[in-house]
Deep mutational scan, measured.
Amino acid sequence: GSLMYASIFGNVSAIIQRLYSGTARYHTQMLRVREFIRFHQIPNPLRQRLEEYFQHAWSYTNGIDMNAVLKGFPECLQADICLHLNRSLLQHCKPFRGATKGCLRALAMKFKTTHAPPGDTLVHAGDLLTALYFISRGSIEILRGDVVVAILGKNDIFGEPLNLYARPGKSNGDVRALTYCDLHKIHRDDLLEVLDMYPEFSDHFWSSLEITFNLRDTNMIPGSPGSTELEGGFSRQRKRKLSFRRRTDKDTEQPGEVSALGPGRAGAGPSSRGRPGGPWGESPSSGPSSPESSEDEGPGRSSSPLRLVPFSSPRPPGEPPGGEPLMEDCEKSSDTCNPLSGAFSGVSNIFSFWGDSRGRQYQELPRCPAPTPSLLNIPLSSPGRRPRGDVESRLDALQRQLNRLETRLSADMATVLQLLQRQMTLVPPAYSAVTTPGPGPTSTSPLLPVSPLPTLTLDSLSQVSQFMACEELPPGAPELPQEGPTRRLSLPGQLGALTSQPLHRHGSDPGS
């Protein structure tokens, strides 16, 4: 009898404990919600809404976190579960008819179910419309201010047509639940991603989709105040780019002037030289400038040598048109050559190039014969006009050509200096018209024969001689050997007369 009593008592207590286990969990969670309300000092109306929603959600799901349970299964099984949970929507909604099984599984994985109690606001006026909503159960109302403009029910759709707008718009009203509602919502990016994977279904979906109420604000059109608020930074940046392009296009129409201050000032006329910023005076940081632009901040801005204009002085008759350009485009679109090309026009420029290279940067340069637009006047290309890779490749080509020119210049200078040193070592320090008596009659020769300089066969020296023939050397430049009979510069000019005159010897006659 005691054994029977113990078994009955144990079973009854276990049954009672299981009955009250759900209630215990409910009270535990309710205590957490109330502690949250007390800690954050939530006001009474919002506090009442929180408690009511918790009670309804507990009775609806029995305190089970559906998302946590669903995430515990593998992905393939999750797709089947989501397809079952959203079967009513996918079967009865017209846009989803005719979709393949794979497309429906992908869509079912992207849908999220939302449960809303009465009085809950789903979308506020001015919120971004980031999702498309399908009503599965219940009814909602749409308000503009305090005026109800629409009441939607089961199988209705609200949001915005995503295929017509590249960016999400703003809501033009509040969406509030009238009863307990079940909503299926899919985010904008998720829907577009699935439709991109199934393009054959995309056309059918957009053609058959009928949005019951379009929440997009109709005033959000390009150029409206609301649109400016939504895309303020983007609009200002776009206007700045367009104004920069218009100014650079105007600059290219004036090829007669070359400016070292950047493309923003290349198009300024002579009357605007004294102004601080020219056409860019209202925004000094709008356009890029070269490193020399920092010198323009000092006094005497109108007389600054940074602004270059072609000189009108005539060229000498024998002067060549100019050196070879550094870039391939210089032959086609440049009416002034790079300062480095002028360094190779003569030997005198070679000796004085490194010492006063900055001073020569603004000297007169030889002109190319074609009066085409200036290379320095070409505006900086924006990322939309020329690819970045093209600019980098041009810079690399320019750097390689500069290296080759520097190597060639160093070799030419070394060769010229070597020839000058050899000339100085071969010439005796001094010569006299009267020579010392020699031991015999073989001493009648006034000077030792001097062998002429070897013929220069280097390509670089031939180019130097060509430049010497075309360029007029300055007075202080050293002379180079030329073709024809060679003669030492330090010898007297009348050596031929010395050989014809008898030598005057000093000596005593033994017979006297």
Rank of each mutant, 00 (worst) to 15 (best):
L453Y: 13
M413K: 01
D251E: 08
S465F: 03
F467V: 13
S410R: 11
L230M: 07
R144W: 05
L491G: 07
L458V: 12
R422Q: 12
L215K: 01
L405H: 04
A177E: 03
S293Q: 15
Q421N: 04
S460T: 08
R422W: 11
L209V: 09
K241I: 13
L365M: 13
P325E: 13
G159D: 01
R188A: 08
Q494N: 09
Q254A: 08
P387F: 13
S451C: 09
E141Y: 03
P321L: 15
P310I: 15
Y133K: 01
P449M: 06
P270R: 08
L178P: 01
T435A: 08
P429N: 14
L473D: 13
L191A: 01
S313Q: 11
D335L: 06
L376H: 12
S432W: 01
L326W: 15
Q423T: 06
P428S: 15
L195E: 02
P429T: 09
Q361W: 03
I350H: 09
P270T: 11
L495V: 09
P446I: 06
P316H: 09
T442W: 10
S303M: 06
G323V: 11
T436A: 12
S207H: 10
Q423P: 05
P288L: 05
K170Q: 09
D335V: 08
L395F: 11
P449E: 12
P439I: 05
P474A: 13
S289Y: 04
H204E: 08
E297D: 15
P383H: 06
Q501F: 05
A414L: 05
D196I: 08
Q254T: 08
K241H: 08
G169I: 01
S289P: 15
N214R: 01
G226A: 12
Q494S: 10
T435W: 09
G153R: 07
E392D: 11
E141M: 05
G438H: 12
V450I: 07
T425P: 10
Q401R: 03
I140A: 03
D190R: 02
E392T: 15
A268L: 08
E479F: 02
R188G: 03
G507A: 09
D296L: 07
K170E: 03
I135H: 01
W206G: 03
E200D: 10
L215F: 02
P305H: 09
C181E: 01
D127R: 03
S304Y: 15
T252W: 11
C337D: 10
K239P: 13
G511W: 01
G262R: 11
Y133T: 07
N214H: 01
G355E: 10
L192P: 03
I135D: 01
D396G: 08
L461I: 07
S136Q: 08
A430C: 09
R216C: 05
Y431G: 10
M197A: 06
G153F: 04
E406W: 04
P263Q: 11
Q254C: 13
T248V: 14
C368E: 12
T415C: 10
L164D: 10
Y362R: 11
S381M: 15
L132A: 01
N219Q: 13
I186L: 09
E210N: 07
G126A: 02
Y362S: 12
F344T: 13
P452I: 07
H184N: 09
P373W: 05
R188Y: 11
R137V: 08
